[in-house]
Amino acid sequence: MNLCVKNLHVTIGKENILNGINLTIPSGEVHAIMGPNGSGKSTLAMVLAGSSNYNIKSGSILLNNKELIHMSPNERASEGLFLAFQNPIEIPGVNNAYFLRTIIKAHKKYNKMSIVDITSLIESYMLKLGISSDFLKRDVNDCFSGGEKKRNEIIQMMILEPKFSILDEIDSGLDIDALKFVSISIGNFLKTNPSSSILLVTHYSRLFKYIKPVKIHILIGGKIVTSGDMNLVKQLETKGYQHIS
């Protein structure tokens, strides 16, 4: 078992955002969460990654049987959790090469690696993904297009090889080519990391052409109201969320 969320209740101020989430994602599986705007999808992603903007009232988050609730965001990352942000943050003044080297070095499995080896590791990924080395000289997400930002998230995921990844609206703002790049890269990642699992947070089914989730969960009003296979998506497309709730 990889990720197990039990009875998770989360608030911002006095407002309840997540009202008892129960979610289990076994190793090697891809799941998806869909839901209308404001249903709590991104909150769930941020809470799993350890954002301090939310109050966890009750519940537990287990990653490979380790409780994450009291861990800091970097400790969760070290345990193998990765969040691809819906709106990746711009960090002017820090170039991608430096940023990648620092985050690689921060991970247990790489922390004894020399800077030279880390640099060659990064370069090998750039080559594999067909990305120009100029990309490394640019500041993290600074003046990046929406597609470039999402691509950067995927590059970071591939290099860090997390056990569990949350991809929050990774398909939003992508043109057809960028969507293909992102999807193929996720597919390749899963092939080389068969025990890793992924939670896709999305509004649209277009990503499912390339990545087939085992399970779809529908989140409405901060609660998973139903789960199912790809047939659930077909129902959604014809009848909308109202029918489900």
């Binding site: 350890g50 301090s52 970097n74 990352a77 003044g93 820090v94 921060a106």
Partner: peptide, 23 residues
């Protein structure tokens, strides 16, 4: 938060942000 979510501890992330501000 973005930097910490990538595995950097808060102290290092903090320092990098400060240096990048003037860099």
């Amino acid at each position: 938060f973005y930097m910490c979510a990538r595995g950097m501890n808060r102290r290092i992330a903090n320092d990098i942000i400060i240096v990048s501000f003037i860099k």
